[in-house]
Design a protein around this nucleic acid. Structure first.
Lengths: 197, 197
DNA sequence: TATTATAGTGATCGAAAGGTCACTTGTCAA
DNA sequence: TTGACAAGTGACCTTTCGATCACTATAATA
């Protein structure tokens, strides 16, 4: 029950921090959103900063679980069409999973203030995805699906445009449909460019 | 002299907001950084929010000046090498010009809170650059420098990876050199892919 | 049943926030 | 020289912030 409340606090904190940032969020609001009074929070965390630290711990752990090991690497697709489908599945997930969206927003807002957020932001936004697709592209080259090239460069060139549109969705959710369409169009164009005919 | 102070306040506000965000900045700090006392600010702006509004006005005006008209469009290059050189010149400027860096940071930090920041962020980070390069690519296709393709798609595919690395520099300035190298490598790879041999 | 640890309450604190106001200083036009 | 106005000062106001503490309710354990 204690642990339950602690988790609820972190979830509520993620929600508020992702909207207003760390500084913009106050403890009173956080506690009332959970149906308890301000001082109740301090039975579970000793300070506002302790909440922030725990939240970052959770985000880092979650990221490590999902992207840390190569076990979670999606299988190398057997066709370019399958590759596009896989991309779109991943995009849909990352755009619609609220927890992931909020995590991205928090990292965006706190990247200049907190060193761990800074580091995690780079992983989330750039290096993590790029490394993952580097491996996928290397595999696809072996299978003869795309032409031989530097897989790291291709991954970078593939991942960053998609990432830019994901950020656009975070910022302007009403453009989500457009963005998803654009991602698919980009993905097809990419395959048209680098795919083996 | 009055106008001078007003401008100085906005410049100091840009500096602080870009580091700590709007909420994280207090006007006592802002005023002492200018060598005056807190209440002095209120001789020039009626509230903290008025400073924010004026700052956004200035950013919007500045953006309109530089990117609004097609007069400021850089000339279509006469060779792919010139194209790369032009890209690198633009990148160096946008990474090292403090005002521009701070503007990007502020927009990053306030994009979820303020509608005008949201809109300007999308222009700065995505649509503005993409539109500019769409025109450049269209011109380069006419000159036979790059192969015929959808110029908007190429611009999007060219601009977003560079933008991602610029954001990386904003977040982790110690990686600036690496990032610039990577931008040039990407630019050359891009030309190797789409340039007419 | 008595004990004890824990979750939650409400009053309260000091610090810091944004903002106001009467006042002083400095500058320029008449 | 003087009057007027803008620029800047310092004391003070109210509100809100994060945080503390004595207290109560609850529920599991000995």
């Amino acid at each position: 029950m204690a642990k339950d409340t602690k988790e609820k606090i972190l979830t509520a904190a993620l929600d508020l921090f992702s909207q207003k940032g760390y500084e913009g969020t106050n403890i009173r609001e956080l506690s009332t959103s959970l149906g308890l009074v301000k001082s109740g929070i301090y039975k579970h965390f000793e300070s506002k900063e302790a909440i922030w630290d725990a939240l970052l711990d959770r985000m880092i752990a979650y990221y490590g679980e999902r992207f840390g090991s190569s076990e979670h690497l999606p299988p190398v697709p057997d066709s370019t069409e399958e590759f596009i489908a896989m991309t779109m599945r991943m995009v849909e997930l990352t755009i619609h999973d609220e927890q992931i969206v909020k995590t991205r927003k928090v990292l965006t807002l706190e990247q200049f203030r907190d060193d761990r957020a800074r580091e995690l932001a780079t992983k989330h936004f750039l290096t993590g995805l790029a490394e993952m697709f580097r491996q996928i592209f290397a595999g696809m080259m072996d299978k003869g699906l795309i032409c031989r090239d530097d897989p790291a460069m291709l991954a970078f060139a593939y991942v960053t445009p998609i990432s830019a549109l994901i950020h656009l969705c975070d910022r302007e959710p009403e453009k989500t449909e457009d963005a998803i369409g654009k991602i698919e169009a980009f993905s097809r164009h990419f395959i048209a460019t680098y795919g083996v005919k």
